[in-house]
Design a protein around this nucleic acid. Structure first.
Lengths: 185, 185
DNA sequence: TTGTTTACTTACTACTAAGTAAGTATATTT
DNA sequence: AAATATACTTACTTAGTAGTAAGTAAACAA
C-alpha cells in the first residue's frame, strides 16, 4: 500500500472514532494531509470503500494482537483486552463498534457486513477466552460464556462512550470493577 | 405546545435514535409531516434547539417514570428500567445517550450540557436505587453503588447498539443475565 | 524510445445541508 | 374594525457533500 493510502486510512480511522463515519468528510482528510479531495477518491472511490478498509485493518489488528497473547493465562489476556480499550480511552477515541453501531442502518450493505464480521469475531474470541479461563478456575462468572462475553464487550464499548460525556473516570471505574468481578470471586 | 411542534419533536426523537443526530436532516422531518423545511425552522430556528428539546423531553419522561416507580421494591424498579430499554430494543431504537455520545464532540455546547445533565440524572437515580436495594438485601453486588450503576447503564446502552448489529437476541441475553447477577446471588 | 501505469491535480457536476427574508392566511386581542 | 400574533409557505442564499472527467508529471516496462 502506498504511503498516502496508509495516511488516509490512519486519519480516517481516527475521524471515525472521534466524529463518527457520517460526520467526517473527505475534506477532513485532504486538508490535513495536504492533498486534493480527488486524491482521496483516487484511492477510495466511494466513502464506503474507505469504511470497509478501516474495518478490515481493525479486524486484522485484533487478530494479530490476540495471537500474540495466545500463550498467556486467560485472565491476563483479559487484562490485555481491557488495556487496548484503556489506550483508546486515554486518546479520547471510542471503539469502532461503538462508533459504527449507532449509524449502522445508514451504512452500505458491504460495510454492514464488515461490522457484523468484526462483532462476531471479537465475541467468538472473548467467549473462548472466558470458557477456557473458567475451566482452569482462573476466571469466575455465572451463566453462558457467550452471554458473559457479550456483557463485557458492551461494558467496554459503552464505557468509552460514557467517558466522552462523564469524563475519563467512568472508564477507569468500570474497567476496575469488571476485572474484580471476574478474577476475585 | 402546538400539534405540529409536538409531531416534529416526536419524529426527530425517532430519527436521532435510528439514524443519529448528525445523520438526519430537516427534510427527513418536513417530508413525512408534509410541511416545508422552513416550518421546522420556525419552531426550531437551529438544529441544536431541536436537539435540546428532544433531550429535555426525554429527561422529563425519565423523571416522571421513576417517580411512578417510587413505592416499588428496588429490584422491581430495576426490572422497570430494563423494560424501558426492552421496549426500545423491540422498536429498533437505541437510547438517546447511545446515539448522542458518539457525536458528543460535534454537538453545540448547549446540547453537550443537556446530554451531561441526562447522564448524571440517570446515574444518580440508579445509584440510589442500587444502594437502597442493597441495604434491604434485595439486590446484591460488589463495589460502590455508583460504579455498579455505571456498569449497568453502559450494559443497557451498549446492548441496544449491539442488537442493531447482532440481532435482538443480544439484548435479551444481556438483560436476563444482568438481572440474574443482581437479584439471585 | 515509446507506451503504460501510478499517483496524483484541476476544474468541475449534481446534490443536500442548514438557515433566512419576506409574504400570507387565520385566529385572537384591543 | 383595526392591529397584532401565530403558524405557516415561497423562494432564496450560503456552504458544504460525495463523486467524476480530463489532464499531467514521474516512474517503470517493452
Amino acid at each position: 500500500m502506498s504511503e498516502t493510502k496508509d495516511k488516509i486510512v490512519a486519519l480516517a480511522d481516527r475521524l471515525v472514532r472521534t466524529k463518527g463515519f457520517n460526520a467526517f468528510s473527505y475534506k477532513d482528510i485532504s486538508g490535513p494531509l495536504e492533498i486534493k479531495n480527488a486524491a482521496v477518491h483516487y484511492h477510495f472511490p466511494a466513502k464506503a470503500d474507505l469504511g470497509v478498509e478501516i474495518v478490515d485493518q481493525d479486524v486484522a489488528k485484533f487478530i494479530a494482537q490476540t495471537n500474540r497473547w495466545k500463550s498467556l493465562p486467560e485472565e491476563e489476556q483479559l487484562v490485555k483486552l481491557i488495556d487496548v480499550f484503556r489506550r483508546h480511552s486515554k486518546e479520547g477515541n471510542i471503539c469502532l463498534m461503538g462508533s459504527l453501531a449507532p449509524d449502522f442502518e445508514t451504512l452500505e450493505p458491504a460495510m454492514q457486513a464488515k461490522v457484523q464480521e468484526m462483532a462476531n469475531g471479537i465475541l467468538a474470541w472473548l467467549s473462548h477466552c472466558l470458557e477456557e479461563g473458567r475451566k482452569k478456575k482462573r476466571i469466575h462468572f455465572k451463566g453462558a460464556a457467550k452471554t458473559r462475553a457479550l456483557i463485557i464487550i458492551s461494558n467496554l464499548q459503552a464505557s468509552l462512550l460514557l467517558s466522552r460525556v462523564m469524563g475519563p473516570s467512568a472508564f477507569r471505574h468500570i474497567a476496575e470493577q469488571l476485572l474484580d468481578d471476574l478474577c476475585h470471586k
